[in-house]
Amino acid sequence: MSRLNVELPGLNLKNPIMPASGCFGFGREYSQFYDLSVLGAIMIKATTVEPRFGNPTPRVAETDAGMLNAIGLQNPGLEKVIAKELPWLSQFDVPIIANVAGSLEEDYVAVASEISKAANVHALELNISCPNVKTGGIAFGTIPEVAKQLTRKVKEVSEVPVYVKLSPNVTNIVEMAKAVEEGGADGLTMINTIVGMRLDLKTGRPILANRTGGLSGPAIKPVAIRMIYEVSQAVSLPIIGMGGVQSAEDVVEYFYAGASAVAVGTANFVDPFVCPTIIEELPPILEKLGFEHISECKGRSWKQHEPFAHYRA
């Protein structure tokens, strides 16, 4: 019996591990390393109506235990994603979560209504939290009423469940989560990157051409854990957690916080095999901790539960 299968709205996952959007392209590069069918799901790169080039370079800067990126939602546009990338991905036995981005409400609606028709797209991830685009993104992700309205509009046209990706760059993330829940979201994904900046020692100027970028990697994991801990107690939506996940232990920690599945982002750049490695290492860790199934870990940080009686060190 599998210890790892997870059922979420629209998603029947053989395991709760998936690469995070923007860190895996459309899967082609990583398919050179392993069979993508081992993954629980794939969150594909953000798709906008029109093709986007994105920001000037430099687009990445390393930080302590993390990195800043300001790619700027570069993608080939809705038409190409539907005509080329999704059909290519259909050779794998893996559900796709399509990340939907835009500048205006109608952009999101246009992408959502089309991309949700693809057979292998089992859910949408509404990207209202990209810190690296000048218009759209941020306002949708920081004003509860705007986020709620957008969620409602996208829900009206989407043929699959809609998960909303929350930004950590807000004063009150619980308020945002509640707003999109009221807007009809089927789930949450969190957290997107944290806005940050690095300056060049020799010039005094920002290293990134975009000046600011989104911080990801192990450095942000405690922030994500805290936010999931808070949000999972305040709403009844399932959460796909992300932010600095690099090991099976991290996955368990995310479940303890209240997540129902976990996405792996930056770690793919460091170790292209990180997702299959985590999937392989999870069962023995659950065994060691005394769990029959990963779902037993969920929300342990705040739920009433028996002490860890049978920890096998």
Binding site: G22, R59, V60, A61, N69
Partner: peptide, 27 residues
């Protein structure tokens, strides 16, 4: 030379514009 993330083409950190489409989206 350009700052890289993944090194294998997945992260789009090290893109440059194609010379025949300097204002467009080709890369």
């Amino acid at each position: 030379e350009e700052r890289m993330g993944c090194g294998i083409g997945a992260c789009f950190a090290c893109v440059c514009k194609k010379a025949d489409d300097p204002l467009g989206v080709s890369y």
